[in-house]
Design a protein around this nucleic acid. Structure first.
Lengths: 191, 191
DNA sequence: GAGACCATGTAATCGGTTACATGATTCA
DNA sequence: TGAATCATGTAACCGATTACATGGTCTC
C-alpha cells in the first residue's frame, strides 16, 4: 500500500465530511463563504476531488431526493476514510510540517479534536511548538549572519518571515493552553 | 497577447536572475540554502522552468567554460524579461494579493526596489496596508459572528488566521517606514 | 417570464514534483 | 579510489485550475 499523504484539498474535504456529511455544493459554499484554507470554490476543483476520494473508497455518496426533484449527492466518510483521516492527522510533526507555506498543519489541527481527540491534539501542539521554535531559531541565525550582506528589501523580507514565525509560535502556545483547559475540565467531570 | 501573470516560481527565477545572472545550479543552491519562498530545489523543478522562460524570450542562457571543462549555462534577463518582471511587480494590489497563502506579495516585494524603485515599492506597501487592513476587518467580523457557533478548534484556527494577519499588517507598516527613510535620505543626497 | 440560485458535471491545460539518469571534477 | 559535489537534464504522473456546459427551481 504505502499510502501517500492526502493532498491539502483531499484532507480538507475528508475532514469536513467527517464533521458533517454533505453535498459537493455545500462544500463549495463553505470554501466560498468561510476562511478555511484557500481552496478554489469552482466545481472543476471539488467534484473531481470528491470522485477521487470515492474511487479510493474513502467516502461514499448517497443520492437524496432522487426521482427528478432536485437530486443531491450527500457524501459520507467510510470506515476506511476515517482510518485514513486519522492517519493523516497523526503524521509526525517534522520541520516540513511547520515550514510549509500553505499552513496545512492548521487545517489538520482544526479537524483533530473531533477525529483523534483533545489529548492527541495537545500532543500535536507540543510537537508543533518544538519544531516551530527550532525553525524560528534557524531563521534568526540566518538573519544575523546574512542581513548585513543583503539589500534592505531582502532584510525586510526576512523580517516578515520572522514576524510570522513568531506569531505562529505564540499561537501554538495559546492554542495548547486553551485545549488543556478543556481536557482538564473533561477529566474533572469524569471523576 | 494578454500575458498571464508569472507563476510564483517563474517570478522568483526572473527576479533572482535580474538581481544577478547565474546558472540553474546556483539558483538551486539558493532555494536550498536560503529561506526564499518554499520552492523545490530539485532539478526537475528548476530546469524546466528555466527552459520555459527561455522559450518565452524572458531570459537567455550563454554557455561559459564551453569546451569540455565544466560547461555552465548562465542565464540573463532579456529586455523583454525585464519588462515582464516589472509588469508582474506592478500588478495592482487586490484582496487576492494579500489573501494568498503562499505570500507571493512578499516575493514581489523583495525584488521591487531593484526593479521598479523604492518609491514604487512604498506605494505598493501603502496599497498592501489598505487591503490587509480590510482583510483583517473581514476576518474579525467573521470571528465575532461565527465563533460561538463553532467548535473550539475552529475558533482557534480562526485565531491563527487573525494573529498572522495582524503580524503581516504590522510588518507592512514597519517595512514602509524603513523604506521611506531610504527614499528621504536619497532625495536629500540628491539636492 | 426573467434572473438568481441550486447542483453537478466534463475537457483541456499546465506547472510542479518525484524519480531516474548522466558524467565530470575535487578532495580525502 | 571512492565519495561528495558540480551541473544538467528527461519522463511520467498527477492534481488543481479555468472555462465551458447543463438543467431544474424558486422568487419577484
Amino acid at each position: 500500500m504505502a499510502e501517500k499523504p492526502l493532498t491539502p484539498l483531499a484532507g480538507a474535504l475528508l475532514g469536513l465530511l467527517h464533521d458533517a456529511p454533505q453535498s459537493g455544493y455545500a462544500l463549495r459554499k463553505l470554501f466560498l463563504t468561510t476562511p478555511i484554507g484557500h481552496f478554489s470554490d469552482s466545481p472543476g476543483s471539488i467534484y473531481p476531488a470528491l470522485r477521487r476520494l470515492e474511487r479510493d473508497g474513502l467516502i461514499a455518496g448517497t443520492i437524496e431526493n432522487s426521482k427528478s426533484l432536485r437530486p443531491r449527492q450527500v457524501f459520507r466518510v467510510t470506515p476506511a476514510g476515517r482510518t485514513r483521516l486519522k492517519a493523516w492527522l497523526s503524521t509526525p510533526v517534522t520541520r516540513e510540517t511547520v515550514d510549509d507555506d500553505r499552513a496545512v498543519f492548521l487545517l489538520r489541527f482544526v479537524f483533530m479534536p473531533g477525529a483523534i481527540g483533545a489529548a492527541a491534539t495537545v500532543r500535536f501542539l507540543t510537537d508543533l511548538e518544538r519544531e516551530m521554535a527550532a525553525s524560528l531559531d534557524d531563521l534568526r541565525r540566518f538573519y544575523r549572519a546574512e542581513a548585513r550582506r543583503m539589500p534592505l528589501s531582502g532584510c525586510l523580507g526576512l523580517r516578515a518571515g520572522l514576524e510570522s514565525s513568531e506569531a505562529r509560535l505564540r499561537w501554538a502556545r495559546l492554542a495548547k493552553r486553551a485545549l488543556r483547559r478543556t481536557v482538564a475540565a473533561a477529566s474533572k467531570r469524569s471523576t
